[in-house]
């Protein structure tokens, strides 16, 4: 396994519980990720994957449970806290302000300012041009609001924002859902590259093949509960499917939920 030599997981979410007015959206779930590892989160719509991950990114508040980073307990109450711990998130909705240009979105909440405290748009555009040159060299629309961009271009802005600020922990919520084959390949290459750099990645996906190709481990959720976490090399796609659909771990006979 990739994390055999790390003492602590990079992130450990322990016994997380979130409920929305009586409905247990996340029911005492524990997951973790080690440096340089990709952990897939699988499950149907409404299984609780996005809710669980939004607790880590600070968008939702948990009702119970603890979060550890490098073995130390941390408090994450809002997106600012998460960013302070170098947790970056690419949301399924992309979370872009459509009326602003790429550079303003990339630096939103972390603007480059000059010594007088005014935002320096030219410097931000220059940085955006640099990172886009690496991620998506075809990207040229720096002056337009992001509403004028294609789905793939918008996605690359969201990815650039997560990667630019030295992420240690990256959360990707359905990063390829809106993309064509060429751009999906681009994202896959990027994940491999980030993995090599020692970043821990949670990858939420519907697509079992994405998970089998890119992930080291997979955690499967159903009805807010964790069905189980498996090494991807040890299971077949049928095993994963039965975990998602039946809530059954490989080798188990009964349904746990």
């Amino acid at each position: 396994m990739t994390h055999a030599n790390a003492a602590h997981p990079l992130v450990e979410m322990r016994d997380i519980h979130v409920s929305f007015g009586g409905i247990k959206a996340v029911d005492h779930v524990s997951i973790d990720v080690y440096p340089g590892e990709v952990v897939g989160l699988l499950g149907h719509n409404g299984a609780g994957k996005s809710t669980l991950i939004k607790v880590l990114s600070g968008a939702y508040k948990r009702d119970a449970g603890e979060i550890f980073i490098n073995g130390e307990k941390v408090e994450i109450h809002n997106p600012r806290d998460a960013r302070a711990h170098n947790i970056e998130t690419i949301y399924q909705t992309l979370a872009l302000a459509d009326n602003l240009d790429a550079a303003s979105n990339l630096f939103l909440g972390r603007e480059i300012t000059n010594p007088l405290g005014f935002v320096n748009d030219d410097a931000m555009e220059a940085e955006t041009r640099k990172i886009m040159g690496k991620l998506n060299p075809n990207f040229k629309k720096f002056a337009d609001p992001v509403s004028a961009l294609s789905g793939g271009q918008r996605q690359s802005v969201a990815i650039a924002r997560a990667v630019y600020f030295d992420a240690r922990i990256l959360i990707m919520d359905e990063p390829t859902a809106a993309l064509g084959p060429h751009e999906t390949q681009m994202v896959a290459d990027l994940i491999k590259q980030l993995k090599k750099a020692g970043i821990g990645i949670f990858l939420i996906s519907h697509d079992i093949h994405d998970v089998l190709d890119l992930c080291d481990r997979a955690s499967v959720m159903k009805n807010g509960k964790l069905v189980g976490t498996v090494n991807v090399d040890d299971v077949t796609d049928d095993d994963l499917l039965s975990m998602i659909i039946l809530g059954k771990k490989p080798g188990e006979e009964t349904i746990t939920s």
Binding site: P79, A97, S104, G109, G117
Partner: peptide, 24 residues
């Protein structure tokens, strides 16, 4: 145009959820 406050006003107007998720 030149302050963070102003930038956040426009970002919040464009997409309040995105602004919130960006730590505003």
């Amino acid at each position: 145009r030149r302050t963070r406050f102003g930038r956040y006003v426009f970002a919040t107007g464009g997409n309040p959820e995105a602004a919130e998720l960006s730590g505003i």
